[in-house]
Design a protein around this nucleic acid. Structure first.
Lengths: 228, 228
DNA sequence: CGCGATCAGTGACCTAGTCACACAAGCCCC
DNA sequence: GGGGCTTGTGTGACTAGGTCACTGATCGCG
């Protein structure tokens, strides 16, 4: 489905059903959602929020993915989680709406289409609908679980294992388009570390590499490591 | 103020004012809170929640502190944040209420006194009060900010700096009672690393050590490192 | 006093992150 | 199609941090 189709779809209330938990909203509230939220389209690489730029809408992603990452002064970064179509950005929104400027930012990885719920409407829905509250708290819960997982990974897991997992996770058709530097930012490490690990994976025949591209040659080999 | 006093206090609605944002609750809602929540006292080292043990009350801490930490299979751990008197445990509660069992647990560091708000009352208050909603979302925000900070620390900061900060932060009167193993768990590292760093701090005359006790001798020295 | 439990110190070794490079591949633009 | 630029990758030497297998020190307690 193309973005233009989504824009049309958003005029009806059908898109609500893409969001786990919102499908059971009472008709009146569906109406509130659809009439008082608007659809936005943003090009790839847009900064959705970031230091000094907090959103005042709750975004429900209809299409595309948003990457949320943490930046350090040193220039290093680490990806915290991704928001995909059918998910909401509650955490960061509510987080922003109240507190200090922190060093996390959300970036559109692809062109995105989203329903933007103004803060007032959000508040109204939270007040009037148990379903919506469940939706919101469930979304929070999911993100926080993700964060816990990230912390566990960074603090306790070996780089080679994390890298193997990441390659498997992000290589659609056995091919992953990413530079070593991008993978390093993804995992919160240095580029050289990735280069060395990938060289080892290649030596073992698990992958083949060329500039900006990693091709999986032996998925079982990778998986064997990843599941250690 | 002793715990017994707090128990008495909790019978009036005064304790509400200890919680940032709840002080502006309308009288009717204050009443809901005080009549339908009960005060609990738990001894030090109680497990408030953990794998396989999710709370069904929202706790508002009146006295004591709760440590929330992440456990790894390897046995290593890391402290995520602490909940202190006048704060709530929203994050973990709401987190638990919805999703999978994860590897975080909350432990009473001291004897604690808390107001326990049943899930139903929580839901009712979120629905009926803008103040309460703000309170909840602000609490979330704070915790998430803490988590972001933890991630930044673990991923990008040097151990010696983190250790120096932790010592300053947790040494009340210039003295910190903690074993090397406890500090290691606090920072998510290994005991040996802490031992070596502390030996170095001692060599520089910043601290003095004895079994289970660290005494600050030159706070400026420590601070100089911590603020690097 | 003697004994077990807990706490701290140490050396050898491995993994990860840093620094300073060299080199290679694509890209543009005459 | 040969310069020059930018971006991506490879490498060696070094430091920081984590693991393992110990030893010795200290404490509590019967």
């Amino acid at each position: 489905m193309k973005a233009t189709d989504m824009t049309a779809l958003a005029k009806t209330d059908d898109w609500i059903d893409r969001f786990d938990g919102l499908s059971r909203l009472e008709p009146a509230l569906r109406n509130v959602l659809t009439t008082r939220s608007h659809v936005v389209r943003l090009p790839a690489d847009s900064v959705i929020f970031g230091p000094g730029k907090s959103p005042d809408n709750l975004l429900l992603l209809l299409q595309g993915t948003v990457r949320v990452q943490q930046l350090a002064e040193s220039g290093r970064e680490v990806v915290l989680y991704r928001v995909t179509a059918g998910e909401s950005c509650v955490l960061t929104t509510a987080c922003m709406l109240a507190y200090e400027d922190h060093a996390a930012e959300g970036i559109a990885e692809t062109e995105i289409v989203a329903a933007a719920i103004p803060r007032g409407v959000f508040d109204e829905l939270v007040a009037s609908s148990k379903e919506f509250r469940n939706f919101v708290f469930r979304a929070y819960s999911r993100r926080i679980t993700d964060l816990f997982h990230v912390i566990e990974d960074i603090a306790f897991r070996r780089m080679d294992i994390r890298l193997a997992q990441k390659i498997i996770e992000r290589a659609d058709t056995g091919v992953l388009k990413a530079t070593h530097a991008q993978l390093a930012a993804e995992l919160g490490t240095a580029r050289e570390v990735i280069s060395r690990q990938l060289a080892e994976f290649q030596r073992r025949g698990w992958i083949a590499q060329s500039r900006g591209v990693i091709e999986i040659r032996d998925c079982d080999g990778l998986r064997g490591l990843a599941e250690t």
